[in-house]
Amino acid sequence: MLINAVIIILREVLEASLILGVLLALSQHNQISKSWSLKALLLGGLAAVMYAANLAMISALHEGVGQEIVNAVLYVFIFTLILAIVYCLRDKQYLKLAAAAMFGCVVLAVLREGSEIIVYIHGFSTIPDLFTPVLVGSSIGAGIGLSIGVFVYYLIVSLPFIYGVISGFFVLVFIAGGMVSQAIQMLLQADLISSELPIWDTSQLVSEQSIVGQILFAMMGYEATPILLQVVLYTASILLTGFFAIGSIKRTQQGNLL
């Protein structure tokens, strides 16, 4: 139970704390006030509680696939906001927009990951024998996830401006790709996209179940058995975000932001 709690909570916390850490570091580099982060965490947490409380109702929507639709929408929104952040950091005049997008991005990430954590832990509150191990495991998972976020933040912040921005964007590009891939996954599961046979299977190489697989999943949406549409859209979203990122880095290097 304990190790299971560690892995479940770690996966959720790592994704949110990675996004938060990178965005805070990019704020620091671009001299954006970081006041958005606290508000985003509070609002995201509140929304997560509400989402978790109404999960049964949401799940039943649209012939039982409401959860998948909401999740897919959340993933697409997060992807769009990451795209907006990467674009807006190219010019001083867009920095306010970038901060707003960061706020939205963290709210949605916390909503998404937080609700899963609440549903998970809440389920054990009626099982006293398992509650302590689950709480201990959850604390360990959350501690590891948050610590990695802290290290990512200070690592990017300690880099010189241009390298900090490049590495921050690098992480964001893959998170963006992961969001699109997960959105497709949700639509597949809800049968809103017709299922096909996977075009490859790398589960022998890196199992999604393994720790490495879990970390790769959190960082870049690793999928051992993707379908063609997923691979195409994943690649496209990475190319698009990467294109925006390179544009922003070039503009920044020309001294627009310095």
């Binding site: 999960l55 799940s59 998948e68 599961q189 299922s195 589960s203 199992s207 179940q209």
Partner: peptide, 28 residues
Amino acid sequence: TSAEEFESYELNREKVIPGKSTGVVFIG
């Protein structure tokens, strides 16, 4: 009464099913 998450790496499915409710998962 507690929630459960139906999960399969082989089937590529992952769905939270809250307590006392029914979830739908398409496979194949």
